[in-house]
């Protein structure tokens, strides 16, 4: 129940919609104070997984735990949940809507109002406070919804595709807030199909593809392990003839740099030695870290930003 225990734990979770298996044999453990990314293409089962965490869907098999117990009402109220479907009371005024959501999550009316006003100010929506929600653009509505997610100062934020539909400036603002919340000791789980975003924010990622978990690891650890054996080199002046280097299977020119793919078992130091022995002056020698995107494709066998149609009946 405390911040010391595992915040979210899924064990062997399975969910089917008719003949379609949306999530299969899924394990997940989120430790407190981390930013956890749930990554995968549309339709891979991210939203279904999140909806099971929130008790909106019941798993057909396996167990879901929040703060060390069943995702009951008391535990769910410690979560700030931003669903993928941006449900709002369209005809309610912005501030009134925020106060209402604060209230039903146990924040006093006046405190909810104060907090809502502060958040609106921060997200540049103050002048919209007394407008009806339906008058706002989609992006603004999304910011309003984000505010209602954090208004009751929850321990855990579960954000389903929080950045989609936002312009880059607002994406940055939201990223900043997410990092801030992490600094304040909050645990954050968010799903995304945008690998770059995940790469910037997450400490730990879980990759889902076709209803199954493919990878679940610390991001730095993952990248270290997944190094592809590609070395980038740049020279001052004339480059040596690349074909003569030992252990290199392929050379690709990328601007001033050469990307050298190494044969299996060839260590980068050997290449460095070979390059230096050519007597050229070296400006850059870097072990290239794989992009998350590449890792994903390598493991899932499908592009990460594949826009597969999301399943009806269960969301993606």
């Amino acid at each position: 129940m405390t911040q010391n225990g595992t915040v979210v734990r899924l064990s062997g979770v399975r969910k089917t919609f008719g003949a379609h298996t949306a999530v299969d044999d899924f394990d997940l453990a989120i430790e407190p104070g981390t930013i956890y990314g749930l990554l995968g293409p549309n339709g891979s089962g991210k939203t279904t997984t999140i909806r099971m965490m929130m008790g909106i869907l019941l798993p057909d098999g396996g167990s879901v735990e929040l703060f060390g117990g069943a995702p009951d009402f008391a535990r769910r109220s410690r979560v700030g949940y931003l669903p993928e479907e941006r449900g709002v009371y369209e005809k309610m005024k912005v501030l009134e809507q925020l106060v209402f959501f604060g209230e039903i999550r146990g924040v006093g009316r006046s405190l909810a109002r104060t907090r809502a006003e502060a958040w609106l100010e921060r997200l540049g929506l103050s002048e919209w406070a007394s407008k009806k929600v339906q008058a706002l653009s989609k992006g603004m509505q999304q910011k309003v919804q984000f505010i209602s997610t954090v208004l009751h100062d929850p321990e855990l934020l579960i954000l389903d595709e929080p950045f989609s539909g936002l312009d880059p400036i607002n994406q940055d603002v939201l990223e900043e807030i997410v990092l801030e919340e992490k600094e304040r000791g909050k645990t954050i789980l968010f799903s995304t199909h945008l690998m770059e975003q995940a790469e910037r924010l997450c400490e730990r990622v879980c990759l889902i593809s076709r209803s199954r978990k493919v990878l679940d690891d610390d991001l730095k650890e993952l990248k270290r392990r997944e190094r592809s054996g590609v070395v980038a080199v740049e020279f001052d002046g004339e480059a040596p003839s690349a074909a003569t280097w030992p252990g290199v299977s392929d050379v690709e020119e990328s601007g001033d740099a050469f990307h050298l793919s190494l044969h299996d078992g060839v260590r980068p130091e050997e290449i460095l030695g070979a390059v230096l022995s050519e007597g050229v002056s070296l400006r850059r020698f870097e072990l290239l870290e794989p992009r998350l995107h590449e890792i994903f494709v390598r493991h899932a066998g499908e592009p990460a930003e594949d826009d597969a149609p999301s399943q009806t009946g269960g969301g993606s």
Binding site: M54, S77, Y81, I104, G106, S148
Partner: peptide, 16 residues
């Protein structure tokens, strides 16, 4: 209305 707009999923996470 609440069901169609899916607001209910938000409300229901705080209310029985």
């Amino acid at each position: 209305e609440e069901k169609q707009s899916r607001v209910v999923e938000l409300v229901i996470s705080s209310l029985r």
